[in-house]
Design a protein around this nucleic acid. Structure first.
Ligand SMILES: O=c1ccn([C@H]2C[C@H](O)[C@@H](COP(=O)(O)OP(=O)(O)OP(=O)(O)O)O2)c(=O)[nH]1
Ligand SMILES: [Mg+2]
Length: 767
DNA sequence: TTGCAGGATAG
DNA sequence: CTATCC
DNA sequence: GCAA
């Protein structure tokens, strides 16, 4: 896998690629021309090539706020009831299965990295509805399609009589064919009628074939499961050859096929499990341990976990020191009474001053945004000589099982069209204050499409999800109702598929595909799990696949990370939005605490708060100090955190900057004295000369940031939370030769300016 | 057919 | 390294 | 899913 990923990364891209995806983020219906000046600027700074892609491991996309939040009314019952409680608002109208028109390509068109790391990409409902007797999709077989063996798809080269594995589904561990012996076995199994899956498809798999060197615990670990369903037989790797030797299916329960450390089973049925027999019939006795686990989990799923109830396990700090509550009270009281006194007040004032969006910099664009947008098309960006040839380094066919397919890849036409016209329609170019949601004529359409977006929320396809998001965003900006597909189609980021859906929604007030998707078993649980802080698509899918349906199931059976524990304990807390006032109160406490440490610190509440939201998903606070660069502020964060714990404000840490002294980030939970709800809080300490970039980053929103960054990269820059850079070069091995030259970082305005984007006030950065 | 932001932390 | 989060 |  690793080699696969590494290889797929192109260090350089040619010009065509350079402009690829230019329109990526939402676009603006009406676009003005951009000034020639900015254009020229862009052109002049443009580099021959630019590394656009950094495909490492980036899977998560959607912001947390729009998705998977559970309505507060339902929160009550989360722990104690099964997830069905959450289905109440799901439309139950006639499902009438719709064949997905677009899903087909997912498996193949998904980039390698995604294919590797994201889930099966099978059509909806395949999980439970795929008949066991149907062959799996080619993509999930362990052998490549064009391998001799696999190619003749089920056309037996071996006499029918010898197709002893007919209807049997094997999952090999390790699940690859790097080992020649294993490859041989896979081939043989395939030749004799068996299916060798490369994906874990629980419904289909009948046997797990385990390498002799592995132990049972390795199997569980490799599958990341706590037990193996009892309809699946676990045998060691001699099983296949023995079966072939005897030309019949042998009893997999026999001692010699056991995997080391495998829980004992009541043996000796000398009858084999029928390949097609329903799960229940196949040796019910085996792996009793596991069975027990799962059943107990389900039976107890209705109980509240007593031991994990609130704050039982965390908040070690509260015990320490002097009465936290008093301290925190004092802090707040101090804040309130502060009219009269002391430098604390002035500190706070200073901080507020800094944070006030008003004063600086906004005057120039205070008015209209019509003047905004964009670079017109006319741009020839054409003639820069490119180092066209993609030096396709190697491509060792090595390793991993399949995928000789990738040999095809690698060649870029390099036809240089003289001019790429890129009408900039980056969302970041457009001021969007996100108001007007009331009278929105497309409200209903947006609502339904948002539901759809949630369904695609990863696991299926992260990109599809963000495409929905982009389309929805465009729709949200419309002032007139979009009624027909043709009408919709004209909008940017709304293509064939979305247009059709929009029309269907307008005409029928529903979307069959959505209803179909909502029927998918496991989907409700998936959403439930995705709502847990620290649980993403991968883990959620794994849990669902293990048959868990409630958080209790999970707590009882799974080893959780520290974050996940807190996330489950405070599922409701973190799912609820924070009133703006409360955000302010949290901020004030941090500010005064920080002020006591160093009176020169400047704090400012960022994120959705700075954008003016009425409520926020969390509290984001940036801390900086005039003139201080780098790590003079090191250790400061630690101290601050410590104090926050002391006063009973900080409840737990979720992620802290790693040990280093440049400790700059802390993510945790905090709580007010009179509000029982824990809140997520994010502190960011930034050097003075990076404050502009940090401001830009931390204000968001996320889509806005991505839009800006994409735009920057198109223009030959690199934008991140530390600054705007140019000339980022990378060596042959994708090694970073330099970090580029920082061209801006002090101020937001400067960054906007250089990128040719009209300044946007924080409230206008809602995309 | 391919890319879709960029970086940090936990494990 | 991947998964998750910002 | 969209755009190239
Ligand atoms: O994927 C992401 C997520 C966040 N951010 C930036 C923008 C965002 O505004 C800021 C804070 O993140 P947070 O998750 O708190 O989002 P928010 O904009 O503050 O919204 P919410 O109200 O959900 O907190 O970090 C990104 O750049 N990329
Ligand atoms: Mg926030």
């Amino acid at each position: 896998m690793w080699e696969l990923c590494g290889r797929s990364e192109d260090p350089f891209l040619n010009k065509e690629q350079f402009f690829t995806g230019l329109y990526s983020l939402d676009s603006e219906p009406e676009q003005a021309e951009t000034s020639e000046a900015s254009l020229a600027l862009a052109a002049s700074r443009n580099q021959r090539y630019k590394r656009i892609v950094r495909r490492s491991s980036r899977l998560q996309v959607a912001s947390s706020n729009s998705t998977t939040k559970i309505s507060s009314t339902a929160l009550e019952s989360i722990r104690s009831t099964s997830i069905q409680a959450f289905t109440k608002n799901i439309s139950t109208a006639a499902p009438e299965p719709v064949v997905s028109e677009n899903n087909i390509n997912m498996a193949d068109s998904t980039p390698d990295i995604s294919a590797v790391t994201t889930a099966p990409s099978t059509a909806p409902a395949s999980l439970e509805c795929t008949p066991r007797h149907l062959p799996p999709p080619e993509s999930s077989r362990i052998l490549p399609v064009h391998t001799k063996v696999a190619k003749r798809k089920r056309t037996p080269v071996v006499p029918a009589k010898k197709q002893i594995f007919g209807g049997m589904y094997f999952y090999f561990i390790p699940n690859d064919i790097k080992n020649p012996v294993r490859k041989f076995r896979v081939q043989k199994a395939d030749e004799h009628g068996g299916f060798c899956l490369k994906e874990w498809r629980e419904q289909d798999i009948t046997h797990i074939i385990v390498d002799s060197k592995l132990k049972y615990s390795d199997v569980l670990k490799s599958l990341r499961r706590e037990f193996i369903p009892d309809h699946i037989a676990i045998v060691n790797d001699t099983y296949i050859s023995d079966c072939l030797a005897f030309a019949r299916i042998l009893n997999h329960d026999q001692f010699q096929y056991k995997v080391a450390g495998q829980p004992s089973t009541t043996e000796n049925s000398f009858l084999l499990p029928q390949p097609h027999s329903p799960p229940l019939s196949s040796t019910p006795s085996e792996t009793p341990l596991c069975d027990q686990q799962s059943s107990s989990a389900t039976t107890q799923s209705l109980h509240i976990r007593p031991q994990l109830s609130k704050r039982a396990n965390d908040t070690p700090s509260s015990a320490a020191g002097d009465r936290p509550t008093d301290s925190q009270l004092a802090v707040e009281a101090e804040l309130k009474a502060s009219v009269t006194t002391d430098d604390l007040v002035s500190q706070q004032l200073a901080a507020e001053l800094l944070s006030t969006p008003g004063p600086s910099t906004t005057q120039e664009c205070e008015v209209k945004d019509e003047l905004d947008i964009m670079i017109a098309e006319a741009v020839r960006m054409g003639d820069l000589p490119l180092d066209d040839d993609i030096s396709a380094p190697d491509d060792g066919g090595t390793s991993s099982d399949e995928e000789p397919i990738r040999a095809v890849k690698r060649k870029k036409p390099v036809a240089r069209t003289g001019n790429s016209k890129w009408q900039d329609k980056f969302q970041c170019m457009h001021a969007n204050d996100g108001k007007q949601q009331e009278g929105n004529p497309n409200a209903r359409t947006i609502e339904i499409l948002s539901e759809m977006q949630k369904y695609y929320e990863m696991t299926k396809d992260q990109w599809r999800s963000i495409s929905y998001r982009k389309g929805i965003s465009v729709l949200r900006k419309q002032t007139k109702k979009i009624c027909t597909a043709a009408e919709a189609r004209k909008l940017p980021m709304i293509g064939e598929s979305l247009a059709k859906k929009i029309e269907e929604i307008v005409e029928t007030d529903r979307l069959r595909k959505l209803e179909y998707a909502q029927l998918e078993p496991g989907d409700v649980a998936l959403k439930l799990f995705l709502g847990v802080y620290g649980v993403g698509p991968s883990v959620a899918a794994r849990w669902v696949q293990s048959g868990y349906k409630t958080l209790d199931d999970v707590v009882k059976n799974v080893r959780l990370t520290a974050s996940q524990k807190v996330g489950i304990d405070h599922y409701q807390d973190f799912a609820s939005r924070i009133p703006r006032d409360e955000v302010k109160r949290h901020g004030d406490i941090v500010m005064s605490t920080a002020a006591n440490l160093d009176s020169q610190l400047q704090l400012q509440i960022m994120g959705s708060y700075r954008r003016g939201s009425k409520d926020c998903g969390d509290i984001d606070i940036m801390i900086t100090k005039p003139g201080v660069s780098a790590q003079e502020i090191s250790g400061l964060l630690d101290e601050l955190i410590e104090r926050l714990f002391e006063i009973g404000f900080a409840m737990c840490g979720l992620a802290m900057s790693r040990g280093r002294d440049d400790g700059s980030k802390w993510h945790g939970a905090s709580k007010l004295l009179d509000v029982p709800t824990w809140r997520r809080i994010d502190l960011l300490v930034v050097p003075w000369d990076e404050r502009g970039a940090a401001l830009l980053y931390f204000t968001g929103n996320d889509i806005f940031n991505r839009s800006m960054r994409l735009l920057a990269s198109k223009k030959g820059y690199g934008l991140n939370q530390r600054g705007l850079f140019k000339d980022i070069l990378r060596g042959p091995q994708r090694q970073k030769l330099n970090d580029g030259t920082k061209v801006a970082g002090d101020s937001e305005e400067e960054i906007f300016e250089i990128l040719g984007v009209p300044y946007r006030k924080p409230e206008e950065r809602i995309c």
